[in-house]
């Protein structure tokens, strides 16, 4: 065992909780925890399906929370973890739709409504002025 490993093992033994289970426990680093929670809020629970994993009591959701916290603590960016999960479960697992041709209507339809509605309003207002 390397010296570093030994220190880590001793630190683990000394801490009141032997092994933190990050499924339910915050990361010690507040910034990393905030990133992890933000990501959990946007990952859909594959068991209960209606909720994000940050608000689900399912075991698998807990596993995903653990995975997210551990990966972020290890230095991965939230988007890297998200794409890892998408690589496993597909786009469905992310509440944040990827920007790609098949999701275009999500942005185009509101934009069209804004432009179309705006044009109608503008035309009427200008006509009033004359």
């Amino acid at each position: 065992m390397s010296a570093r490993g030994l220190i880590l093992a001793l630190a683990l033994l000394a801490s009141p909780v032997l092994a933190q289970d990050y499924a339910e426990v915050s990361l010690p680093d507040a910034r990393a925890e905030a990133q992890a929670v933000a990501l959990m809020d946007s990952i859909r629970c594959v068991v209960c399906q209606g909720q994000p994993i940050s608000g689900s009591n399912a075991d698998l959701a807990g596993d995903m929370r653990r995975l997210i916290r551990e990966r972020i603590a290890a230095g991965e960016s939230p988007e890297q973890v998200r794409s890892f999960l998408i690589g496993r479960y597909g786009d469905w697992v992310s509440f944040k739709p990827e920007v790609k041709p098949i999701t275009a209507p999500l942005w185009l339809v509101p934009l069209l409504a804004l432009l179309g509605g705006g044009a109608l309003v503008a035309r009427r207002l200008q006509r009033r002025k004359a």
Partner: peptide, 8 residues
């Protein structure tokens, strides 16, 4: 299958 949620 896609999901649309809070981020969107």
């Amino acid at each position: 299958k896609i999901s649309v949620g809070a981020p969107y």
